[in-house]
């Protein structure tokens, strides 16, 4: 499982580096907004509602090839559905780390 597997997007939209870069940057922007929502929901004890935001971001994470991020989001979806706050926190922290890694990969 890779932090950013560019083959995924290449196989989806074709070998257009400029377009791929645009989608990667757009994903980071979207992820930043989703993280704000997710942490807000966590801090407000609305853990169950995190599921929908995690699902939303998972779609684009998979599409841009952010495999590790997508996997954590999948776990977060399940944990949130079970209203497990402690595990939810762990997953959000992991998600934060994974997204920073994607950021690093996109900027490199």
């Amino acid at each position: 499982m890779e932090v950013l597997n560019r083959n995924v997007m290449r196989e989806l939209i074709g070998d257009d580096n400029q377009l791929m870069k645009k989608f990667e940057l757009e994903f980071l922007k979207q992820a930043r907004e989703s993280m704000r929502k997710i942490t807000g929901l966590y801090n407000n004890n609305q853990v169950v509602l995190i599921k929908e935001e995690a699902h939303f971001l998972k779609t684009s994470a998979k599409a841009v090839g952010a495999e590790l991020t997508a996997d954590i989001l999948q776990q977060l979806e399940l944990i949130a559905q079970e209203n497990n706050k402690a595990q939810c926190k762990d997953a959000i922290v992991q998600l934060n780390v994974a997204l920073k890694q994607v950021y690093g990969a996109v900027r490199s």
Binding site: L28, T39, N45, N96, K100
Partner: peptide
Amino acid sequence: DDETAANEILPEFSDF
């Protein structure tokens, strides 16, 4: 709120 304050997660991702 008070109960969750101790467990607050800071959105470190905001450094973007």
